[in-house]
Design a protein around this nucleic acid. Sequence first.
DNA 1: TTGTAGGCGTTATCAA
DNA 2: TTGATAACGCCTACAA
Lengths: 347, 347
Amino acid sequence: METITIKDIAKLCGVGVSTVSRAINDHPDINPETKQMIMEVIKEYNYIPNNSARNLKRSDSKTIAILVKGVDNPFFAKMIRVIEKEIEKKNYSMVVHHVEAYEDEVAAALELEKEKKLRGMIFLGGFYSDTSENLAQVKVPVVLVTSAKPQFEHDNTYSAVSVDDEKEGYKLVDYLCKQGHEKIAIITDTMLDESVGKLRLTGYKKALKDNNIQVNQKLIKYMEESEDYSMECGYSLMKELLESREKFTAVFAISDSLAVGACRAVHDAGLKIPEDIAVAGFDGIDIASYYNPSITTIKQPIEEIAKESTRILFNVIRNKSMHTHKFFEGELVVRESTNKSKENSAD
Amino acid sequence: METITIKDIAKLCGVGVSTVSRAINDHPDINPETKQMIMEVIKEYNYIPNNSARNLKRSDSKTIAILVKGVDNPFFAKMIRVIEKEIEKKNYSMVVHHVEAYEDEVAAALELEKEKKLRGMIFLGGFYSDTSENLAQVKVPVVLVTSAKPQFEHDNTYSAVSVDDEKEGYKLVDYLCKQGHEKIAIITDTMLDESVGKLRLTGYKKALKDNNIQVNQKLIKYMEESEDYSMECGYSLMKELLESREKFTAVFAISDSLAVGACRAVHDAGLKIPEDIAVAGFDGIDIASYYNPSITTIKQPIEEIAKESTRILFNVIRNKSMHTHKFFEGELVVRESTNKSKENSAD
DNA sequence: TTGTAGGCGTTATCAA
DNA sequence: TTGATAACGCCTACAA
């Protein structure tokens, strides 16, 4: 079967293609009756405009792309949903594009930009230092969400919205110290990481120092290149930690998923949480509160971050403001996994 | 800045556009030296071909689209990864398109088909009965994954790969019965559901009957229209169940996420799993094995399902075979949440 | 091996 | 309010 085009519809309706185009795109200057007639024919023949052709021709597309790095981060799913809602409020549409961890997100962005005639982009996750210059190649306004790097704070070629990962890491570890823990381990990203992993690790180190605790390299457990922020990884790293000779009474896993795996490893070793070992995570995803024991974490204000990101993006698009870097405060949520006085439940 | 096109590159290189095109697309009949020269210029000027224009012109695109309904199903993430790998093996590329629960997946499919000149599509999730006729509108071969409906088993307008949800539901509940449970509750999809929720529920009912246990409507807890397969939903439904007058000693949550929420509710009610109430889920996602207690579930053979789906798709594309409906066997994985003799751990 | 020219399906410009 | 017609950027006969 031939694929039906705008020309066919025009012929069928006995009008010109431009009239059909006007009908499709809700142009004002068209007779309502002709429009209705055309729309009926379109319906009847199941005509669907070809997006490639549209994108090719259009200059204005009113669409925002959101580039997500790391498919399985449950933390992003919610964020995307909120962002989409905000974008729809502005009468724009959104396209989501996933890139794998090993892919070059800037290259993908560049391609998308051309293909879809975007008005703006939002990056979720990813964005490592070496691509920061490349990012400038993207012509439309860009907002980095959840991947800000303080050292680029004054870079005004893009905006950024996130929590201050170092500060939040500090907050969490400082809390652990105040709870009386003196030997605190950390399960973190790879040694080479330059992103949130590094920042949270730095916060960890600073908190220890400020509490007069010396950093013990043996209590810092880095992921391997091949691993990711998964429960499986948290489990195996925690297991290694437990099997090492080093003593510790608390562990900070830099994501909730890692923390879940860590908890299970503690449990399987026959130890109790938090009596023998306290465990804390980061992000504030659902599982942290539903796990048993519920897991202490830094809750990122997803909703606020999402809303602020789109707000900034539209401001830049409309030339209402310059690029901005904004940090939100995370919330330390104390739960059973670090709290010996058991009075908590899922919230 | 002007966006740079193939013409610009041609001019820059002092060659015709077709030569540049040949260079880009790895055509055989081109002088290797010219090709290299062109590629260098392309690199230097950061030229990126416009996909819309390509798709518009191309008839053959060698791409498969995978349409995912329901963003946050962690069960799909793994599936997508395996499918992508398979597709790449065939030297095709894949595009992932997400649709929200309320969106019409067939409409989205139709649009995508035209836009990307697809060779085939894979549907993940979704696909409710009323759209089965519409599905025929899609011209390229379609494989439904994880959403097969037995009543359409002989519909040869598309293929389908999944577990037999009814049978697996039966298997799980039958196991619970054999464990001595006589009052078994179920947390399931909405009353109106026509998809996996209904099938698993049917399996539940049949298992009860075959074990001479009467179905008690008060032990069937349906989700509300607004709810989804989330921990939160599992928690609140379980809570309602516990607060009702009905007695029961086991509950079958039709997804692992629901089961997690249910477990937490049991725990918060001060009851013990599995001693007071046994809990079982469905899907076999990571959290089921890392949860505490680890959760008994039906493990879907994700890898096999993914591989078979692409195998079938390519067979149909190449006219090597007709559309097929294939069911895989799920695996009953018994864990701590239903097993009073505690000898299990995360696997 | 290379270049020219036409067309993919749409939107936008310009007359009518 | 409408209808031709020229792009949009690319690929591909076809001719050279």
